Amino acid sequence: MIELLMPPELALSIVGLLLGVSFFASFITAAFGLGGGAVLLALMAILLPPAALIPVHGVVQLGSNLGRAGTMLRHVVWASLPAFTVGSLIGVALGGVLAVNFPPWMVQVGIGCFIIWSVLARPPRWMATNAGLTGTISSFLTMFFGATGVFVAVFTKSLGLSRHGLVSTHAALMTVQHGLKSVMFAVLGFAFAPWAGLIIGMILFGLLGTLAGRQVLNRLTDHRFMLALNGILLVTAARLIWAGLTGE
């Protein structure tokens, strides 16, 4: 039965590792707000063919965020969703149509510096008032870069929500973004069928990770949650800058 989870080019050990990483990544995001998507992308970049990396990661993240939003639906703050959705449509369309591909190092360094500035200083006013622009920029970048959840997290963090509101609202916004991105990759011709078993398995393990991480979230205070979130943001930003400057 497990063979159904394996695309032809992946060994059983690799499939098992990807399932475990999916659990761990969802656990991190459910407990601390974000970070899991970047961890998952980093491991998948090593284990998957480059052409499959961003599309497969996008669908797995769609399932993970949908599960997280669904389990905390009553905490979602819906006000920013319509504008973010419109912005995401624009960003995904531009990213899918434009032939321009920004150098990855430039995107990594730019996002990393922006995140550090937003954590250490007051987030820019437009991050709290313009969900549409946030959706456009982050959705455009995610077509090339993959894990831009940290960018969207700067927006949700600026809204001043409780820890449950922040995690659930962020998940709802990322569900929209990854959903639109996955549709665009399908339109562009990526064949998801050979990867369907692996994707389903990773989504299911991600849901288990979400349920486990939510138990940690319930035990944190809002203050400790924000400390953990800021710490993850800074570490992720530093890693992005390092990767961009060194190519690692």
Rank of each mutant, 00 (worst) to 15 (best):
L240N: 01
L12D: 06
N218L: 14
A172H: 12
V60Y: 01
C113T: 11
Q61I: 08
L245A: 14
T148F: 09
I28V: 15
L10Y: 05
I232M: 09
V150K: 00
G146D: 04
G165V: 12
A243C: 02
F155Y: 14
V76D: 07
I199D: 02
I54A: 09
F84K: 07
R125G: 14
W195D: 00
G206Y: 11
A147V: 10
R224N: 12
L159P: 10
F144E: 03
M127F: 13
L207W: 11
L204N: 03
G110T: 12
L245E: 00
L47I: 11
Q61W: 12
H223Y: 09
H164D: 15
F192Q: 03
M6C: 06
V97L: 14
P8F: 04
S158N: 06
A131G: 13
S118W: 02
G35C: 13
V176E: 03
G63Q: 04
T148W: 07
F205K: 03
P82Y: 06
E3F: 05
S80V: 11
A99C: 00
G165M: 14
L34C: 03
R214S: 05
A79S: 15
I2N: 01
I137V: 15
T175P: 04
G58E: 03
F140I: 08
T236C: 13
F114G: 12
A238L: 13
G63R: 08
F192H: 04
A38R: 01
F225M: 07
I116S: 05
G206P: 10
G70V: 08
A79C: 02
V59L: 15
I54Q: 04
L204D: 02
L34W: 12
L245C: 13
L188D: 08
I111F: 06
M44V: 02
I111C: 09
G16F: 08
P124G: 02
G37W: 09
